[in-house]
Design a protein around this nucleic acid. Structure first.
Lengths: 213, 213
DNA sequence: ATTCTGTCTTATGTATACAAAGAGGCTTGT
DNA sequence: ACAAGCCTCTTTGTATACATAAGACAGAAT
C-alpha cells in the first residue's frame, strides 16, 4: 500500500470517526510525523480529502477539518433525496429483479441481526451496503453513482452522530426492504417514494437525537 | 499564482478544449517540462484533475485523459436533469423573483447577441453563466451547488463537441428564458419542467450533431 | 521456434532540502 | 505607555535526488 493511501485512509477515518473534530488544523509536519510518512504523500492525502469536502484549505491557516452543522445536514439530505430517489427509480427500470428480491428477503430477517451482539450489527450494515452497491450497479450511470459515492462519505460522518438505537435500525431495515421490494417489482415511482420516506425518517431521527430535550 | 494552480489550469483547459485527446497519457516528466513546473506541483494538478474525473489513473500506465462517449453523454444528461431540475425547483421556492425577472428580460434580447460577431457571442455565454450562478445562489444548498459545479466541467467538454450554431443558440436562449420566467413566477414544478425540456433539446442537438448523416 | 529468465530502462512514489511568505513578538522611538 | 517597524520563527510551496517497481527486450535453453 502506498504511503499516500495509508495517510489518506488514516486521516479519513479520523475525521469520519470524529477523532479529528471540525476546525482542527492539519499541519503538514505534525500529521506526517504522527502518521509516519513524509510530507509529500501527506500533501496528496490532504488534497484528496479537500476534493471530497472533508477538509478545506482555509486561507493561510492551512488545511482544516470541515464543520457539519444541522443546517448542513438538511442540505445534505436534500441532495441525497434527489440522487437516491432518482437512483432507486432507475434501478427499478433497469435492475435485475431477482437480485433485489433476494436483498428484500435478507432485509426482512435483519431484525435478528440488529438485536444481536455487536458483530451481528456489522452484518446488518454490510447488508445495507450491499443494497447500495446493487443499486449503484443497476442504474448503469457512472456519473450518478460517483455523485452518490461522494455523498456517502459525508453521510457516514453524520451517522456517527446519530447514535442509531436498535429501534431505529429495525424500522430502517423495514424501510430498506420496502425500497428493495419496489425495485424488484420494477415500479420506479414506488421505489422513489419508498426512498423519500426512508430518508425523511432518517433525517428526523438524526435531528431528534440532536435537539436539546 | 502557485505553480500547481498554473499547471492545473493549463491541463484542464487543454483537456476541455480537446487539445489533449481522450486516452492521452500524461507522463509526469513530460508534462512538467512542457508546462515549466517541477513534478511536485504537477502531481498535485493531476490529483485534482483525477478527482474531478477529467483524468483517471489507469493502473500502471499512469494518468490518462478520460474518454467521453455518446453513452457517457446520456448518463451525464441523466444526472444533469436530476440535479438541475431539482435546483430550478428550489430556486423557484427560495430565489429572489426580481433577479430572475431581470435575467429573463436579458435572455429575451439574447438573439441579438447570438447573431452578432464572436465577442458578442461571448456575452451570451456570460449571460447563461449568470443564470447558472443565480440558481446556485438561490438554492441555498452548498452540496447541490457543488455537485452541479463538478458536472459542469464535463458539460463544457461536451459543448465543445456540439458545434453550437446560431439557430440552436437562439432556441436555447428562449428555453433559458422560460426557466428564468418560471423561477421568477415562483413556480417550482414549472421551473423543473422547463429545465427538463431544455436539457432534452440540448441532448438531442448534441446527438444529432454526432450521428453520421 | 518458442518460452523463460534476467537485466536494463523508464516510469512513478517518497524523502528531504531549500525558498518564500506570513504571523507574532520584540524593540525602539515618540 | 503606545504604536510602528523590523526581525525571527513557523508554515507551506517547490525542486530535486533517490528508491522502487513494472515493463520491455534480448539471449539462452528446451
Amino acid at each position: 500500500m502506498r504511503a499516500s493511501d495509508k495517510a489518506y485512509a488514516a486521516l479519513r477515518d479520523d475525521i469520519i470517526e470524529w477523532r479529528l473534530l471540525p476546525g482542527t488544523v492539519l499541519a503538514e509536519v505534525e500529521q506526517s510525523e504522527r502518521l509516519g510518512v513524509s510530507r509529500t504523500p501527506l500533501r496528496e492525502a490532504l488534497s484528496r480529502l479537500t476534493a471530497e469536502g472533508l477538509t478545506t484549505t482555509s486561507g493561510s491557516r492551512g488545511v482544516v477539518v470541515t464543520d457539519i452543522s444541522l443546517e448542513d445536514i438538511d442540505e445534505l439530505f436534500e441532495l441525497r433525496e434527489t440522487l437516491e430517489g432518482k437512483a432507486a427509480a432507475l434501478a427499478a427500470e433497469r435492475g435485475d429483479a431477482a437480485t433485489f428480491e433476494q436483498l428484500r428477503l435478507e432485509l426482512l430477517k435483519a431484525p435478528e441481526l440488529i438485536s444481536g451482539s455487536d458483530p451481528a450489527r456489522h452484518a446488518y450494515y454490510d447488508l445495507v451496503g450491499r443494497l447500495d452497491e446493487a443499486i449503484d450497479a443497476a442504474i448503469s450511470n457512472a456519473y450518478l453513482a460517483q455523485a452518490m459515492r461522494s455523498l456517502r462519505v459525508h453521510l457516514v460522518r453524520v451517522r456517527r452522530l446519530a447514535a442509531d438505537d436498535a429501534q431505529r435500525l429495525t424500522a430502517a431495515a423495514a424501510e430498506h426492504a420496502a425500497i428493495a421490494e419496489a425495485i424488484a417489482a420494477r415500479n420506479p415511482r414506488l421505489a422513489q417514494a419508498a426512498t423519500t420516506l426512508h430518508l425523511h425518517r432518517s433525517l428526523s431521527h438524526v435531528k431528534v437525537a440532536h435537539t436539546p430535550h
